[in-house]
Design a protein around this nucleic acid. Sequence first.
DNA 1: GCAATTGATGTAATAACATTACATTTCAAA
DNA 2: TTTGAAATGTAATGTTATTACATCAATTGC
Lengths: 140, 140
Amino acid sequence: MNAPVSSPALTKNQTLVFDVLDRSEAPMSAYTILDKLRDHGFRAPLQVYRALDKLTEFGMVHRLESLNAFVACAHRESSCCGAGHGHGTVAFAICESCSQVMEFHDHAVDHRLGDWAKSKGFKPSKTTIEIRGLCQTCAA
Amino acid sequence: MNAPVSSPALTKNQTLVFDVLDRSEAPMSAYTILDKLRDHGFRAPLQVYRALDKLTEFGMVHRLESLNAFVACAHRESSCCGAGHGHGTVAFAICESCSQVMEFHDHAVDHRLGDWAKSKGFKPSKTTIEIRGLCQTCAA
DNA sequence: GCAATTGATGTAATAACATTACATTTCAAA
DNA sequence: TTTGAAATGTAATGTTATTACATCAATTGC
Ligand SMILES: [Zn+2]
Ligand SMILES: [Zn+2]
Ligand SMILES: [Zn+2]
Ligand SMILES: [Zn+2]
């Protein structure tokens, strides 16, 4: 269940993609990332998708399913469930006005969904929790 | 916050789309629905997307973000949070082997996420909870 | 009855997101 | 130094969703 994964040294493409995402305020689509990296020799979507796959596997990047977009992990150092990037289920609050994304982990929610799964004999592999709405600033 | 919505009589296209989804065991993409409805005069994706938009608005259909697909609501009559289809946040467990989808509502999860939002001044408009994994049968 | 408005529909074209297939390169282990 | 695994480059294609515009149908106000 979302076992921590080691994150080896990144390849050149992985580093480029991660740096773009990490410097971005907002989530980015694969194609937006591609455009940002044309200057660095990127020519095709697959170069981005391959890097994103690995970064996601390493837990350094998350895919926002409701946006078809990606963010660098903001769940940095350790936490309650697993160390470093090897976190358990994480949730996102996504502002539909300014695109800001807040990443958080809620133990109670995680356990509650885990209990539900157990009660149904369901074996979770990945859980998505995304709250769309307005951040404090934009709601004011 | 996810206020109940009245569901007026459906139009012809809405009825066709809903019936296809309602009879399906598994979630369907808009294009799969389109193919099922060619015989009934459907020719273009927009006919499906427009119907899906309305059905979603009525709470009769849900979009599964992690699948880019749609299911008929299985949350039928009333429930704790709002009557009929006008439900609060709902969660889905999606079997990656047999495609079966279980729709459920968990009060505790809903309130916990609501509390988090309140504590951050975040105003939720829509919350997505999707658990991918293996159903009891497929996990055996 | 007959505009005027509104919502639904039909159709084509295009945009946005993602994968398959195959050739080539890199690099560390044997 | 062979060789095998992982990464990369490139093109083509597949899948999902929207924009733009024309037409049609039901309702409302006159
Ligand atoms: Zn994270
Ligand atoms: Zn905001
Ligand atoms: Zn439902
Ligand atoms: Zn199953």
